[in-house]
Design a binder for these strands. Sequence first.
DNA 1: GCCGTTTTCGGCCCGACTGTTTTCAGTCG
Length: 601
Amino acid sequence: MDNISIARLLDETASLLEIDSADPFRIRSYRRAAEAVEQQTTQLSTIADDPKQLLAIAGIGKGMVANIQALLTTGTMPLREELLQKYKPTMLELLRLPGMGPKTVALVWSACQVCDIDGLEAAAKAGHLTKLPRMGEKFVTKLLKGIEDHRKNSSRFRIDKAQQHADTIINLIRAFPGIDEIIPAGSLRRGRETVGDLDLLATGPACEPDVVSAAVEHVAALPLIDKLIAKGQNKVSFTLRNNLQVDVRLLPRASYGAALQYFTGSKMHNVALRQRAIKRGLTLSEYALLRLEDNVIVAAASEAEIYNALDLDYIPPELRENGGELEAAATHTLPQLITLADIRGDLHMHTEATDGRDTIRQMAEAALARGLAYIAITDHSKNLAMTNGLDDTRALAHIKRIREIDAEFAEEFAAGNKSSATPYSLHPTPSPFRILPGIEVDILADGALDLDDSTLAQMDIVVASIHSHFNQPAEEMTARVLRAIENPHVRILGHPTGRKVLGREAYAINIDTILKSAAQKGVAVEHNASPARADLNDLHLRLAKKHNCKIVINTDAHATEELDQMRYGITQLRRAWLTPTDILNTQPTAQALLQQLRPKP
DNA sequence: GCCGTTTTCGGCCCGACTGTTTTCAGTCG
């Protein structure tokens, strides 16, 4: 059993304990243990014989060692079995519905014997639920809507999860000798926020027709396969334990480009491309671009050859949605899309002062190691009590500390003895790494901010975001944001739509009005790079560009490794046709960036 | 259930919002 499976079972046990109204702290222990296990780089199965090594992991104690050893040897553990006597595993899915917490799940089970989504929907429609305590018309309406949304989304996977699975599988397949290239095609390659399944295309000497069967057998025997769906001449289809379907195709080098083009899509892009081919007396398939009259291959080995043979510039996968990219490619007017390397700073992140996990210095070191030139530390303000948000006094003390560490970085730079993963000297224009003092200030229900202007005046970066009262009518919500950005200290509007991928609809808000107003006031709008919260979708981003709005892309990292999520945010910017000049934090230095932001009052 | 320890047990982020109540439990972040 691998770490992911152990983590999942521990987490599920935590959920079952919640339904069972167990001690909340005991529940938290199981959740923490699950997280800790998931983050381990070594497989626990290899060190399970040595309890000392397990106990060395923070969050794993004596009890958890016994649990993990039970899981590894028997595939389950006593507490889990005991809970499954009382409850059904399908109840865990009910917890994912909005408004359904452990207490409510336990209630519908004991009162109506409802333990799955279909049963819950039936009970809701039959009016059984309104007879229960604390459940009225409104609750049932919201619940039915939640079930509908859940069904719509649950068959898709977020891009980062899909990418992780793809990386794992790719590494396993690459281990087979004679496979030298393997690329995920489909919506993952196009950078969609969610993907339905994985399409992996491999090529190399081992994929040539006369020898491919050995490679097919290798793929069909991968250890992480849950169900093998199909095994053909050069294609293997299977599902993983989480139901993600994976199609692996092993293709000869000569037709790899055509296959990559075909399986990357999108469908509408391919239709348009094939129409263009026919007009030129050609025909495009997954095998090659052929001349119609004599079936001679015009292009097949690479995508670039195919596009060029159709009198088009190479079109990046993110643009292949039949949204004007063919016309642009034909007239050589495709945009120079932004890349990860263009991003020089990250202006929204949290530290252990509030709900982050790492220190100011750790975040800075991690950003420097990732090649950034500057960051802003923007911890939460006091209204977010659950994050231990900063009041005015603590906020001022915090930025004092930020300034100190910023000065330390400057000293270390001057002394030339900075030891970090990326020495300053590797940067084209060496200058000290900068840490800007900032805050993520909360926009209250009436649009006021929850810290004093005198405090905000001390900050280089003031990100204003909404964290409560999500259910205001659109007009009120819009007015509230407009009032917040009236405050001259606000320089960035944080996660302006509150959208969550696979989780929550955007706030009811008039985004057009807000973007216009932000553009007029010089307030930058933030695209949250986290794949869970790709806040502005590509439509929003295009709208922001149209209104000449300043745009920043930030990770909102709560730990050093979350800085890596920038890559997913970049993909969304590319899908919106944005270039480096459309984004403020492509500015090379903190000073240049600050000059681009709204001037301080 | 874990942790830190004054080695034997107490502390472990908790406030705001919602839909239901008629004073609050449950959910969310």
